[in-house]
Design a protein around this nucleic acid. Structure first.
Length: 904
RNA sequence: GGGCGCAUAGCUCAGCGGUAGAGCGCUUCCCUUACAAGGAAGAUGUCACUGGUUCGAUCCCAGUUGUGCCCACCA
């Protein structure tokens, strides 16, 4: 086909953007070309005749990877731009929340890459200690086995198998999404290198006194059989029962209230407030503890609130964090009465009972003794649950490893306070500070098998012998490594530098640390963000990111949280297969108002698919009409107002889009590009250009070049968000190798206010006439002949275009009725031979007249208001003056039109 | 008990001291040769309530109500 032919012989692209997988796959022409940058032939023949996103997207992705577009180079002299991925847990598959964050990260790095940065988006996954171990244990349970049946080594082997399977699934999803990550740098938190980083940091912290071992009350999950940290506990309001128990005998009694009667077996004191006169006589005395043969002291402690309940508290130092503190202050015994599974160990009738069975049994026994003086049920109170398995947490006295947080948290907080790291949106930083400034020490040891084994060896007496990666543990009897593993967040806290090769001073580390942006959900500020900030400032002396971009959570179309129990969870793959990855990505970007939750529904993805289809067809049309990017842009003197208008708008949109990208305003970005492309380019410029194309000659050549330019830039602007369809269309349009490595558009600074005004007038004229016609119920099928009279020089130049847009007959036919329509800066007189509904017209005009009169009254009032004139800014006053002027003109005109109407 | 946020069209959400916006949905018309996954024209809101500041408040301030989230060792 001849290049630039205005009359294509056949449809070069399918007329519909069909994402169904069942469509025939298309041969990939560009693969056959040995030279990807071959001679430019902007012909529709470059595009396949059918397009099926689900198929084409995968092909395109593999090609990008093969060509190494996403591989970052440490040796380049380009400015680095780095994002490390929040490593997904290997527990399952990616959900819409991942798709959402990945879209943002991908768009950011793709744009920076196009801008000439050495862009690195580093991929990887997290071993997710307790979560993964639980999943594999569930799997084993289905086979009727437990992890103890397998033994530690075989179990860990089994988890690695799991990781291969589900990790592979996740990587496949990332490819399907189009994530432009550097696969040569893929990392896993249990990799040898990252494990070494973990051990090295552990050793450093141990030596700096920031890691210590201590016996304290910890949150214990009786199902997972491990300690967990404070933030791994989820509190929820549960129905309980508050019972008041009478302790002691005779006149030496005291009533205490509890929701946990079973722990009374471990009580070693009753505490009252020191100033509480009701109990003054008891302080220091010992009273009988029911159901046991023990007596316990009554102690005075300021922690007790005399206003609450009876003002007396039972104290169980081994099973309650508050009581633990009281126990310490008063040197009380720590008596454990529950084992690691929550079963009573205290000798006696309750031994062997589960904690909840024991609770009712003990209450029953006390009731029999008449020691229950009051009951309140249900009693709603806040109860801690394991965030992984929802089992009720059992506070338990236990020896664990701890991180001394205060010095680390101080540094992490300062990095944000002094502006080295910026949290965006800013109001989220209060949440960060709240936590960083009040954080308690962090329990890091876990009684699990899957994770980084604590790098500590003990001697025969249980003493710490050596710590860290470089020391050989001494052999011989009784020497052993700590059996526990580290909290999974310990290794993910090192992620921004461990992935780049630390503790070695690798070129990667030199070039890419600190990273630029962290994109993650506000829900893991404490778990992950704060920990990375602590480790980064401590280990590297530099916070790991310049910007922390916090995203909201993805919700369903009614703003409801997605969860399995609601049944509203959507697999991103489902929508990607049905509508294409681009459609999903665009929808997610469109919902991305910084820091707010993102609702998403299938209809919205469909709408995005429709947008992709629109771009597809507009580009197809452009190619059929010879749009080109060849050669320089025509001079301004050669361009029509329509050309200057669209280029003026184009450059403004480039600037606007840049601002939005820089501010992570993806919702505004996608909205601006959507409306510019669809409304201005496709609905107006393309329609206006049709008349020019039809006439041929130099004006048509100019329009072809301008249309080519506009599409080229729009496709490049959209590429970071919707990479696939833009790649296909951009390469077809420009003949370029790939839009992935194309230059990012720059605002040339070209603006043409006059042209923008002129086209606005044309648009208004066309719209007014269309509305008039619709109001009159004039059907196109009626073959209405019309005489179009344009008043004002600017519109005369557009007469052909207006006739085309309104599908008017050529001038010169007979006409009778007259309608004169208001247009800013001009008048369009439309003379119609069709019948006019006089009553409808009178009604419409009356309505307009009323509106204009109201406007006149309002504006006159304002302009007569001296206080207003004194204070309102000039531009506001000008605007109101202008409105009054228009209203006056309108009133005169409408009155004349009303008078001209034939009598009803 | 503290802290933060939100209340705008049927739905999901932007906006913002100076005549109320988008997408989807809805109504009417049109299969105009890029696209019916399209085109054209429309309807719809006491901008939660009550006060205050201002020439002017959906926007700023105070309070009320409703709602969501986070934190917290309420026995």
């Amino acid at each position: 086909m001849a290049q630039g032919s205005a009359a294509p012989v056949h449809k070069p692209i399918r007329d519909r953007y069909i994402p169904a997988r069942t469509l025939a796959v298309v041969t990939d022409n560009s693969q056959q070309s040995p030279e990807p940058n071959g001679p430019h032939t902007a012909s529709p023949a470059n595009l396949p005749t059918q397009y099926a996103p689900a198929e084409v997207e995968e092909t395109l992705y593999e090609r990008w990877v093969e060509r190494g577009y996403f591989a970052a180079d440490t040796k380049s002299d380009r400015t680095p731009y780095t994002i490390v991925i929040p490593p997904p847990n290997v527990t399952g598959s990616l959900h819409l929340g991942h798709a959402f964050q990945h879209t943002m990260m991908d768009a950011l790095t793709r744009r920076k890459r196009m801008q000439g940065y050495e862009a690195l988006w580093l991929p990887g996954m997290d071993h997710a200690g307790i979560a993964t171990q639980n999943k594999v244990e569930q799997q084993l349970a289905e086979e009727g086995k437990s992890r103890q049946d397998l033994g530690r080594e075989a179990f860990v082997e089994r988890v690695w198998q799991w990781k291969e399977e589900y990790g592979g699934k996740i990587l496949g999803q990332m490819r399907r999404l189009g994530d432009g990550v550097d696969w040569s740098r893929e990392r896993f938190t249990m990799d040898a290198g990252l494990s070494r980083a973990v051990q090295t940091v552990f050793k450093k912290m141990y030596e700096d006194g920031l890691i210590y071992r201590a016996e304290r009350i910890i949150n214990w999950c009786p199902r997972c059989l491990t300690a967990i940290s404070d933030i791994e506990v989820e509190y929820q309001e549960d129905d309980g029962e508050l019972v008041s128990l009478k302790y002691g005998e005779g006149d030496q009694t005291v009533v205490v209230a509890t929701t946990r009667a079973e722990t009374m077996l471990g009580d070693t004191a009753v505490a009252v407030h020191p100033d509480d006169e009701r109990y003054a006589h008891l302080i220091g005395k010992r009273i009988k503890l029911p159901l046991t043969d023990r007596t316990i002291p009554v102690v005075a402690d300021a922690h007790v609130d005399p206003e609450f309940g009876t003002g007396a508290v039972k104290v169980t130092p081994a099973h309650d964090p508050n009581d633990f503190e009281i126990g310490r202050r008063h040197d009380l015994p720590f008596l454990s009465v529950l084992d690691e599974r929550g079963v009573i160990t205290a000798h006696g009738p309750f031994e062997g009972l589960d904690r909840f069975e024991a609770r009712s049994a003990i209450v029953a026994a006390l009731r029999e003794q008449g020691r229950i003086v009051a009951e309140k049920r249900p009693y709603v109170h806040s109860v801690g649950h394991c965030s992984r398995c929802k089992t009720t947490i059992e506070p338990r006295l236990s020896m664990q490893w701890w991180v001394k947080v205060a010095p680390l948290a101080k540094k992490a907080g300062d990095a944000v306070r002094d502006g080295r790291t910026r949290i965006h949106p800013a109001d989220m930083s209060s949440r960060y500070f709240d936590w960083v400034d009040n954080m308690h020490d962090w329990t890091i040891s876990r009684q699990l098998w899957w994770g980084h084994r604590i790098p500590v060896w003990y001697g025969p007496e249980g003493e710490v012998v050596c710590v860290g990666p470089d020391e050989e543990p001494p052999g011989g009897e009784g020497w052993h490594q700590d059996p526990d593993v580290l909290d999974t967040w310990f290794s993910s806290g090192l992620w921004p530098f461990s992935t780049l090769g630390w503790p070695e001073r690798t070129p990667d580390l030199e070039k890419f640390y600190p990273t630029d942006v962290l994109v993650t959900g506000y829900d893991i500020i404490f778990f992950w963000v704060a920990r990375m900030m602590m480790f980064g400032t401590y280990v590297m002396d530099e916070p790991p990111f310049h910007t922390i971009q916090l995203t909201g959570l993805v919700r369903d179309e009614h703003g409801k949280k997605m969860s399995k129990s609601f049944g509203n969870v959507v697999d991103p793959l489902e929508w990607m297969e049905a509508y294409g990855s681009d459609a999903l990505r665009f929808t997610l970007a469109n919902g991305a108002n910084p820091g707010t939750d993102v609702p998403i529904g299938e209809d919205w993805v469909k709408a995005s698919r429709n947008f992709a289809n629109k771009i597809w067809n507009a580009t197809r049309f452009a190619l059929m009409n010879g749009a080109t990017v060849e050669g320089p842009l025509p001079g301004q003197d050669e361009m029509a107002a329509t050309d200057r208008w669209i280029l003026s708008r184009l450059n403004a949109v480039v600037a606007e889009a840049d601002g939005y990208y820089d501010d992570f305003q993806f919702a505004k970005l996608s909205d601006a590009l959507y409306h510019f492309a669809w409304d201005e380019v496709f609905d107006w410029y393309v329609e206006l250009a049709k008349t020019t194309f039809g006439k041929g000659g130099r004006p048509a050549e100019v329009s072809r070049r301008v249309l080519g330019e506009v599409l080229d830039v729009v496709l490049r602007l959209l590429h970071p968000v919707i990479p696939f369809v833009t790649e296909t269309l951009w390469t077809a349009l420009t003949g370029g190798e790939s839009v992935v490595i194309a230059d990012w558009p720059k605002d040339s600074g070209f603006r043409d206010e006059a042209a923008e005004q002129e086209i606005a007038t044309v648009q208004r004229a066309v719209t007014e006439v269309r509305r008039f016609r619709a109001d009159q119920g004039l059907q196109p099928g009626q073959k209405v002949r019309a005489e179009l009279t344009l008043d004002g020089t600017s519109l005369v130049a557009h007469e052909d275009a207006i006739r085309q847009l309104l599908r008017l007959q050529p001038a010169g036919e007979d006409f009778h009725a007259t309608a004169s329509l208001p247009v800013a800066g001009a008048t369009v007189a439309l003379d119609l031979s069709g019948a006019i509904d006089v009553e409808a017209e009178r009604k419409r005009l009356s309505k307009d007249l009323a509106a204009a009169e109201k406007e006149l009254a309002q504006t006159t009032g304002k302009l007569g208001n001296e206080a207003f004139l004194a204070k309102a800014p000039d531009h506001v006053v000008e605007k109101i003056r202008g409105r009054r002027g228009v209203a006056e003109v309108d009133i005169a005109r409408i009155r004349a039109q009303l008078a001209a109407l034939p009598p009803g």
